[in-house]
Design a protein around this nucleic acid. Structure first.
Length: 580
RNA sequence: CGGGAUGUGGCUCAGUCUGGUAGAGCGCUGCGUUCGGGACGCAGAGACCGGAGGUUCAAAUCCUCUCAUCCCGACCA
C-alpha cells in the first residue's frame, strides 16, 4: 500500500478523552475514531489489525472443526422469553420495538438464536456433534463504557456454540475449543493465561477465561505460585480454602451482650471504639433480591464476593439494600445491622464465621453492637458458604501453597452450558434407541476487537504501539527518504514492487514529508519492521532495517535485498515467538 | 443510578471569577526556503463559543433548564 494514497490520520497530541494507553494510541495512530460513547469507527489500520486477528481465529476454529455462519444482530424478544433471559439480562440488553410494536433486542450474544436454529434442523444423533460460529458485531449497553476498544458497547466478537449428544461429547468439544483458543492466542503473539471463571449471565456450570496479562487489566486473577499445581482463577471465581460442615450449636461462648457504640458506623470505627481487631467483627450486608431482603455475613476485614453470593442465593435482580430498606429490615440506620433477631428470613454466612467463637455484630439499633454472638447458637443461618473474596495471603485452594495476584484482560471465555438452553428451548434429538434427548451445549467467545486493544496494552513504548507481526496493520513499513533525490525514489519504488511481488504485507511511505514525520508515524503505528532507504544508504548499497520492538537497526545489502530481508523477517517473527 | 468535571475553528487548550471587537499552538491552503527523528518564513481559509430560555443597553462570560462527553463509585461479558 502506498501511504500517499491511503488513509492513516495520525495525531500529534493525545485526545482529551482517552485514558488508557491502548485507547490513546489507537486514536493517535489513526486506527479508530469515536462516534459516540462506547461506539467507534474502525479506520483502515484498525480494521486491518481486527481482520488479522479475526483471520487467525477463523483458521483455528476451522481447524478445530467448527463451521462458520452469520446470525442476525437483531433478535426477537420471544426467543429470550423462552429462556427467561428477557427478564434476567437486565439493562445491558438494548431493547427496541418495530413499527408493529413487537419487541426486539440487539444481540449481545446468540445462545437463543443458535439454539432455535439447531432445534429446527438437527433431529438425529447422526448429525451431532456440531459446532457453529460467527465473527460479528455485538452490542451490549454497558453501564459505563470506557477505555476505547477495551470496553465498548459495540464490539466485534467471535462466538461459537457446540451441540453434543452427551456429556462426554460436550467435554470433548470444550477441550477442543480450549486448545483452539490456546493456539489462536499463541499465533496472535500475546502473553496470556487460561483461568477458572464465573459463567455470569451466560449461565452454565463450568468455564475458563483467557486472560492477556497486563497491568492495566480490569480483572484480577489469583495464580498459584507452584507451577506444578497450575491453579489460576479470576478473583470473582477463586474459591477460598475452607471446610464446610456445621457450626456447632453448643458452645462455651458467653451470652450476647449489648455494648454502646455511639456513632460507630463502619468496621474501623467499631474496632477503634471497642479496641478489637477487625477480624473479630462479623459484618452484616443487606441485599435486596427481587425486592426481598437477604443478609450476608463476612468477617470485618474481608470483602464479600458478590458473584459467589449471587450464585448461592439465585434471583434475578440483586442490589445492595438502600438506606431506607436497611432501616426497615434492621430497625437501625446503616452501620448497625446484625444477624440477631434480624427481620430477614435468609441469612448467609461465610465459612470463616462458623468458628466456635463470639463475634461482634450490629445490634439492629442505632449506636449499639452486640458482642459474644455465636452464629450456631444465636442466629438462624440458612447456609454457611464460601462468600468472601480470596486474598493474596490465603493459601491456594487446590494445593495449599502460596498464591499471588496479577492483572489481566479477558479476551476469551469458554463455557460448558450443559442443557440449560436446550431444555429451556426444547432442543432435542433422537438417539440410537429412538429416544428424545436434550442436546448438551457449550459456548465459546473471543473478543476480537478487544484483542487489538489488549495487544497494545501489552506492547507499547514512549513512541507508540508495538504490534506483534501476526496482527500488525502492516507487517513492515518501507520509508523512502528520497525527497528530490530521484535515484532514491526510483530504488524505493523498485524495492516496494519486489516486496509486493513476494506477497509481503508492506506499507510504502512515499509521502512528500520530512524524515522525522515518517519515522514518528511508523513508530506510532507500531509496524514491527521498518525499512529505511536514504541517499547515503543507496550510495553504499545498503538499506537500514529497524526492529520496532527492540529498536535495533541493521543494514541489509541492496544487492540481494530480498533474500537478506527474508532472513531478517524470519528472525523478527522468531523473536516474537511466532511461526511464519 | 450516585458523586465530580468538562463542552470555545479539524485537534489540544486559553479567555468565564470581574459582562463590552472571539484568541494561541498544532493541523489545513498557497508561495518560497528546507529535507536522516514531528522544520522555517510570508500570505490565507476556518467558530451561529453544545442547545433552549432568561437577566442586561450589551452575554462565551451571570441565572434557569436541557443535552453530550469524560473520571470515580455502584454495576457488568
Amino acid at each position: 500500500m502506498r501511504l500517499s494514497r491511503y488513509y492513516i490520520p495520525t495525531l500529534k497530541e493525545d485526545p482529551a478523552d482517552a485514558e488508557v494507553v491502548s485507547h490513546r494510541l489507537l486514536m493517535r495512530a489513526g486506527m479508530i475514531r469515536k462516534l459516540t460513547s462506547g461506539i467507534y469507527v474502525y479506520l483502515p489500520n484498525g480494521l486491518r489489525a481486527i481482520e488479522k486477528v479475526g483471520q487467525i481465529v477463523r483458521e483455528e476454529m476451522n481447524r478445530a472443526g467448527a463451521i462458520e455462519i452469520s446470525m442476525p444482530m437483531v433478535q426477537p424478544a420471544d426467543l429470550w422469553e423462552e429462556t427467561g433471559r428477557w427478564g434476567y439480562y437486565g439493562k445491558e440488553l438494548l431493547r427496541m420495538k418495530d413499527r408493529h410494536g413487537r419487541e426486539y433486542c440487539l444481540g449481545p450474544t446468540h445462545e437463543e438464536v443458535i439454539t432455535d436454529l439447531v432445534r429446527g434442523e438437527v433431529r438425529s444423533y447422526k448429525q451431532l456433534p456440531i459446532n457453529l460460529y460467527q465473527i460479528q458485531t455485538k452490542f451490549r449497553d454497558e453501564v459505563r463504557p470506557r477505555f476505547g476498544l477495551m470496553r465498548g458497547r459495540e464490539f466485534i466478537m467471535k462466538d461459537a456454540y457446540s451441540f453434543d449428544a452427551d456429556e462426554a461429547g460436550a467435554e470433548k468439544s470444550y477441550t477442543g475449543m480450549y486448545e483452539a483458543y490456546s493456539n489462536a492466542f499463541k499465533r496472535i503473539g500475546l502473553v496470556f493465561r487460561a483461568v477458572q471463571a464465573d459463567s455470569g449471565a451466560i449461565g452454565g456450570d463450568f468455564s475458563h477465561e483467557f486472560m492477556v496479562l497486563a497491568d492495566t487489566g480490569e480483572d484480577t486473577i489469583a495464580v498459584c505460585q507452584d507451577a506444578g499445581c497450575g491453579f489460576a482463577a479470576n478473583l470473582e471465581k477463586a474459591k477460598v480454602a475452607g471446610s464446610g460442615g456445621q457450626c456447632p450449636a453448643q458452645t462455651s461462648v458467653a451470652a450476647p451482650e449489648e455494648v454502646a457504640t455511639p456513632g460507630a458506623h463502619t468496621v474501623d470505627e467499631v474496632c477503634a471504639f471497642l479496641k478489637v481487631e477487625s477480624s473479630a467483627i462479623a459484618k452484616t450486608l443487606l441485599f435486596s433480591v427481587d425486592g426481598e431482603p437477604v443478609a450476608a455475613l463476612v468477617r470485618g476485614d474481608r470483602e464479600l464476593n458478590d458473584v459467589k453470593l449471587r450464585n448461592i442465593i439465585g434471583g434475578n435482580d440483586i442490589e445492595m439494600a438502600s438506606p431506607e430498606q436497611v432501616k426497615e429490615w434492621s430497625s437501625a440506620p446503616v452501620g448497625f445491622a446484625g444477624p440477631v433477631e434480624l427481620k430477614v428470613k435468609r441469612i448467609f454466612a461465610d465459612l470463616e464465621l462458623q468458628r466456635d467463637q463470639g463475634w461482634v455484630v450490629g445490634a439492629n439499633k442505632g449506636d449499639a453492637h452486640l458482642k459474644n454472638v455465636h452464629l450456631g447458637r444465636d442466629v438462624q443461618v440458612e447456609a454457611f458458604a464460601d462468600l468472601r473474596v480470596i486474598t493474596e495471603s490465603d493459601p491456594c485452594p487446590e494445593c495449599g501453597k502460596a498464591i499471588s495476584f496479577t492483572k489481566g484482560i479477558e479476551v476469551g471465555h469458554v463455557f460448558k452450558l450443559g442443557t440449560k438452553y436446550s431444555k429451556a428451548m426444547n432442543a432435542t434429538f433422537l438417539d440410537e434407541n429412538g429416544k428424545d434427548k436434550f442436546m448438551v451445549m457449550g459456548c465459546y467467545g473471543i473478543g476480537v476487537s478487544r484483542i487489538v486493544a489488549s495487544a497494545i496494552e501489552q506492547n507499547n513504548d514512549e513512541h507508540g504501539a508495538v504490534f506483534p507481526p501476526s496482527i500488525a496493520p502492516f507487517e513492515a513499513c518501507l520509508i523512502s527518504l528520497g525527497g528530490k533525490d530521484q535515484a532514491v525514489t526510483d530504488k524505493a519504488e523498485e524495492l516496494y514492487a519486489e516486496l509486493l511481488a513476494e506477497g509481503i504485507d508492506i506499507l510504502y511511505d512515499d509521502r512528500n514529508e520530512r524524515p522525522g514525520v515518517k519515522f514518528a508515524d511508523a513508530d506510532l503505528s507500531g509496524y514491527p519492521m521498518q525499512l529505511v532507504l536514504g541517499g547515503k544508504g543507496l550510495k553504499n548499497g545498503i538499506i537500514e532495517a529497524k526492529d520496532r520492538k527492540t529498536g535495533e537497526r541493521i543494514e541489509l545489502p541492496l544487492d540481494g535485498f530480498l533474500g537478506a530481508f527474508k532472513m531478517w523477517r524470519a528472525s523478527i517473527w522468531q523473536a516474537w515467538g511466532l511461526a511464519l
